[in-house]
Design a protein around this nucleic acid. Structure first.
Ligand SMILES: [Mn+2]
Ligand SMILES: [Mn+2]
Ligand SMILES: [Zn+2]
Ligand SMILES: [Zn+2]
Lengths: 134, 134
DNA sequence: TCCTAACTGGTAATCATTACAAATTAAAAA
DNA sequence: TTTTTAATTTGTAATGATTACCAGTTAGGA
């Protein structure tokens, strides 16, 4: 837990039990969950937790770049504790988002066609291994 | 216009003036517009056009793969007449989505880590050339 | 020309996210 | 340690894109 305190402090964010809980959850659940899944999973242990706080916290942590936002799924924004640029696979059947470890030649580019790059996103859509075997 | 009739017929979709108008609009407006922009731009010439029809049409055309859906912007789905896999740049300031012509080594992959690939998406987020110069 | 399944258009519902404001709290200052 | 206050949390209400629904219309084959 000291680990998360340190991360937040290093970026000048106030330490609150809600933020620590959410950050720990993301670290331990690398399934690219959305705000609602996080909220529901934490609600049982933290009955007073508010859905708004989950949204606020995710937004605050994204701002200081300690987590990453994934705009891949059409319906909800999903979050990733892993901030190094990496690629994803979205299963069109079960909806899961899976990390794929492939190298990309544009990983370190700072601009394309004169446009300044701040984030790089690559993902595949299809049917995942598990869903393929019925 | 015969061009669009041919495209729709080839895929077994009924020819309707609404569909022809929307498909032509997408062909002539490669700005990756969303449903609402399409609706508003066409409304003046086609006062009876319904927003629902725009959504239905885009969905039907995406199903038969004559247009492409872009899930890049957080708030709305945007559409592209250009269906060959290619990369995009999303400006975080003005919101425009721009084609970028770079080659990708995964362009023709059929699977990764055992997951069957059906679509490949790559995009950059940052500040576009125009917005950079204030 | 007739018939019918497919399509259109208007309105209502859904659902993720944001706005708002009152109550609480982290942490800096005294 | 106590005080102070700006930041945070929470519950509820609003927003906005998209979907559901259904009655009326139409494309296109018989
Ligand atoms: Mn990831
Ligand atoms: Mn494009
Ligand atoms: Zn799957
Ligand atoms: Zn721009």
């Amino acid at each position: 837990m000291e680990k998360y305190v340190h991360i937040l402090k290093g970026k000048g964010l106030k330490i609150t039990p809600q933020r620590l809980t959410i950050l720990k959850y993301l670290d331990e659940n690398r399934t690219h969950p959305d705000a609602d899944i996080i909220y529901n999973d934490l609600k049982s242990m933290n009955p007073s937790l508010s859905r708004t706080t989950v949204y606020n916290t995710l937004d605050a942590m994204r701002n200081i770049k300690i987590i990453q936002e994934l705009t891949i799924s059409k319906t909800e924004t999903r979050y990733d504790y892993h901030t190094d640029p990496h690629h994803h696979f979205l299963c069109m059947k079960c909806g899961s988002i899976i990390d794929v470890d492939i190298k990309c030649p544009h990983q370190d580019s700072k601009e394309v066609d004169g446009h300044r790059i701040e984030e790089i996103h690559g993902y595949f859509k299809g049917i995942c291994k598990i869903c393929s075997n019925e």
